[in-house]
């Protein structure tokens, strides 16, 4: 029996190396998002791709300018800024002017992350902070949905000059949630599943989003309790409403597949930084989001409530963490 040459190797700790580092997780999410993103670009054309690029550019530039110099290289290297810009881009309307998407990306990183002390310090999901800012600032442009159209025709509003609104020359069409809320018209199941409806850039293709989610779950990057809890709570709540008055309220399947429900539940609410730490807290968080979404969608003034639901539960997360601390091992039952 032979041994290799240094027979005893002595190193300072840590000796165990984790494969799951921040850059690895971020790249996993990139891979998971790719199919749904490609589907979005396929349905909405090259204009959507430009909007996505602008949002990523805003995020990366602000990350580069405003993160502390000694950490800049690491922050840019871990791919989280690109991911934030990407996720924000997926929640934007495909015909949004590029400069607005750029500002959204900049706000998402600037106010959503850098100011909190960088990755890990932020208590609100950065991409959703950017989107909430855009929706409050440009309410009309952010709710102008275009129908899926020709791949090579780019709506001229995408190229609107900075501070200009831009004419939308593409065919506009209300999103499935808008149709439901204001005209009580339900979009077909298969259109919702495959993504051939109007809506935000990356939220329409339910099937591919679920596929990406399964990949993330298989790679253990995602706490399955959050998407399951959100979808279950939302479907139960909307089933109850549906049973009360089927003509007025949307059914559970429609609620789960339409709008940003899947995108939010799988990719945004599961952000490990802004969701609770304990399993019990995670359930509370997820069920809270599910109930708030349906509450805002059905009774609120907006057709879509996913963004607000997640931001509100992000705000409650510190309190949830505080009151669901597990018992310290070895202490009595009454100890916290």
């Amino acid at each position: 029996m032979t041994q290799k040459d240094p027979k005893l190797l002595i190193q300072p700790g840590p000796q165990l190396r984790q494969e799951m580092t921040t850059p690895v997780v971020m790249r996993d999410v990139w891979y998971a998002l790719t199919p749904a993103t490609l589907a979005g670009i396929w349905f909405f054309g090259l204009g959507a791709f430009l909007v996505l690029l602008a949002s990523i550019a805003g995020a990366v530039l602000v990350e580069w300018f405003f993160s502390p110099q000694e950490k800049r290289r690491y922050f840019l290297g871990d791919g989280s800024a690109i991911l934030t810009g990407w996720l924000l881009g997926l929640t934007l309307p495909p015909a949004l002017p590029m400069w607005m998407a750029f500002i959204g990306g900049a706000v998402a990183i600037g106010l959503g992350k850098t100011i909190w002390g960088g990755l890990g310090g932020n208590l609100f999901n950065p991409a959703l902070v950017g989107r909430a800012f855009l929706l409050a600032t440009f309410p009309i442009a952010m709710t102008t949905w275009t129908a899926p159209g020709d791949f090579f025709s780019i709506p001229s509003s995408v190229f609107a000059l900075p501070l200009m609104q831009g004419e939308v020359d593409a065919l506009t069409q209300a999103s499935p949630l808008g149709l439901m809320k204001f005209a009580h018209k339900e979009t077909g199941f298969f259109d919702l599943l495959f993504g051939n409806t109007s809506g935000s850039l990356g939220e329409t293709s339910g099937l591919l989003l679920i596929l990406g989610g399964v990949y993330l779950w298989w790679r253990r990057d995602l706490d399955w309790r959050i998407p399951v809890g959100i979808l279950a709570a939302a479907m139960v709540f909307s089933s109850i409403l549906f049973l009360i008055d089927p003509d007025k309220y949307p059914g559970p399947i429609f609620s789960a597949l339409s709008g940003g429900m899947l995108l939010g539940a799988i990719y945004m609410a599961t952000d490990p930084v802004t969701s609770p730490l304990t399993p019990k807290g995670t359930w509370i968080f997820a069920i809270g989001i599910g109930l708030l979404v349906i509450l805002i969608r059905v009774f609120g003034g907006f057709p879509e409530g996913m963004m607000y639901a997640i931001l509100l539960m992000n705000a409650v997360t510190p309190l949830i963490d505080r009151y669901t601390q597990p018992r310290v091992f070895g202490r009595g039952l009454d100890s916290k």
């Binding site: 609100f124 902070v129 909430a132 800012f133 409050a136 708030l292 509450l295 805002i296 009774f299 609120g300 003034g301 907006f302 409530g305 963004m307 607000y308 639901a309 931001l311 509100l312 992000n314 705000a315």
Partner: peptide, 9 residues
Amino acid sequence: MAFMGFAGL
């Protein structure tokens, strides 16, 4: 901004 979601409830 998060509380804006309740507008029109």
